[in-house]
Each structure stands twice: as C-alpha cells, then as structure tokens.
Design a binder for these strands. Structure first.
Lengths: 148, 148
DNA sequence: TAACTTAGATGGTATTACGAATTAAATCAA
DNA sequence: TTGATTTAATTCGTAATACCATCTAAGTTA
C-alpha cells in the first residue's frame, strides 16, 4: 500500500512503472540542476539559458518566445529587459507588424550560448560516461521516441 | 563550425553526442514542466513538491533538508514556513540537539504527496506509453545505470 | 569559564512569474 | 472613413524563491 503506482498487472501498458517514474524524475532533476549551475556561473537563470538556446536558431516575436518558454508575455518583457541590458539580445521592430518586436541574439549572446552549451556537454560527459557507446545510442533512441 | 559538441572520434567515450545531450535536456524540461504544472494545480511550487517527496520517507533536520534540496538553510526556513502554514509539514524540536529542528509530513501532507504523485504518474503515462513494455524496462535500466 | 562552532531564523535584495491595466497598432464593421 | 474591437507589448503591483549577511541560542572545545 502507500505507493499506488506499482507495476500493476493491469489492462495493458497503461500503468506507469514506479521505477521508471522515479528514474525519469531523478534524471530530470539532475540534468536541470546541472544546467542551472552552469547558467548561474555565467550569472544567468535557467530560463535565460533556455531563452538563449531558443534564440540560437530563431528570431521570434515576444509572444512567440513566450509560447516557446511557456510563460506569459508580461514575464518575457522583464526577462528580455534584463538580458538586453547585458547586451546578449536585441529588440528589433517588426516591419510587417508595427506592434510586434523581434528578439534576436547579439554576437555576444551567440558566443555565450555556444560556450555554455559546451560547458554543459562537459558536465554531462561524466554522467553518460557510465554508459557504453551502444547504450548511449540506445538511450538517445529511446528518449527520441518518447519525445516524438 | 559553431556546434563544437559533435561525436568527435576522440580519446574514447569522452565526447558527448549532441543528440543525446539534446534529448536529455528536452526530456528533462518536459518532465520538470509536467511536475511544475501538477504542483501548481495544488498551489505548490516545484521545490515544495520535491520537499514533500523527500519527506515521504525521511524526517530530516532543516540542514539535512537543505542538503537534499541543494538550497541554503535560510531558503529552507521560509519554504517550510509557507508549507507549515498550510498544515502540510510540522516542525519538531530534536531531543538529541536543542538547536536542531526535525521536519516531518503531517497526515494532510502525506495525503497530498501521494495524490500528486498519482497525478504525475497519470501525466507521464501518455509520454512513456509510446514505448513498448520492453523499451520501458530498458529505459528504466539505462537511466538507473546513469544515476548510479 | 571563555572562545568557538553549529542550527536555525530573520532581514534585506534581486529575480521570477503572474494577473490586471495601459498604450499603440491593426483589423473589422457600418 | 470612422468607430469598435482585437492584438502586441509594456508597465505596475504582488507573491514566492533564493541568496547573503547577520543574529540568537545551543552545543563543543580549550
């Protein structure tokens, strides 16, 4: 009793194996903590880091960016304010819509985004280093299937 | 160039495959977002939810709890204040150390923690439902090995 | 007993994120 | 074309998060 999430022999593949749930949660917390720490070393929040990653290959409007981040537009205004103050992103008036604002990375922003990504890769290395090459490929594939 | 994280034929298993890095990050954001949303529906933050999960099978001191959460002790004080105000946790004076405080879940806290966990399982279900049973077991095992 | 260390709480600050209200531009209707 | 409505973004006020520095009380050590 207590944990009602065990691998019950139910009506098919519906019940979530408790161990998978736990492993997914723990992995996620580990990865996110790692991303946060790396971002923090560059005086960035996790959200700012996400934003930089998103802007690497996009130039969205404020509303679109809010959509990507799952935030309200009002939240993104302040977020961009702070990052723009540091010269990492730039606001450009949209030519097609006089109300809209296009957000893009500056050169500094591009540099920082790339650098942080490399650092993250360095930190994730030891984590996935416990897996053999074949296991890494299998994990990549399984996660990919799940996300699809 | 630009992305310096490709699967370089390096000195062994050191380089991080970019795709694995991306899949891990995306999975983590997905899972964390799911946890956050579920917590938010119960007027809890992600940290509060983590705290509840931790307290399910522990009765740590404030300092120990801070260690589990990776937070400063001062941050945990306020965190516990807010959750205790809602009757989910309880502070008890430690008998072995007059300075220390033991934190434990109340019955309400236990109930809520269990309920939220069940809801999370329900939301993760569709995600991992794309995998066959065998794939789920393999994923569980791979994540477990990585976390070990 | 005096000096030090540790546990927790408190106060002040910056950030985050929200909702409500505001301004300006765009669209739709008459 | 004017007037009403919708939409994009910002601003304002609020609550929560988390930090650091500081404080108090309780332990430990010299």
């Amino acid at each position: 009793m207590g944990t009602d999430t065990g691998t019950t022999s139910g009506t098919g593949a519906e019940a979530v194996p408790a161990e998978l749930l736990d492993n997914l949660a723990m992995t996620s917390f580990t990865v996110i903590a790692l991303l946060s720490r790396t971002a923090a070393e560059h005086d960035m929040s996790l959200t700012q880091f996400r934003m930089l990653a998103i802007l690497r290959d996009r130039t969205p409007t404020m509303a679109e960016l809010a959509g990507f981040l799952g935030l309200e537009r009002s939240s993104v205004s302040g977020l961009i304010d702070r990052v723009a103050r540091r010269g990492l992103v730039r606001r450009t008036a949209s030519r097609s819509d006089g109300r809209a604002v296009q957000v893009s990375l500056t050169d500094d922003g591009h540099r920082l985004a790339g650098q942080v990504r490399a650092e993250v890769a360095g930190l994730i290395g030891p984590l996935i280093g416990t897996l053999t090459g074949a296991e890494q490929r299998r994990l990549t594939q399984l996660l990919g299937k799940m996300l699809a």
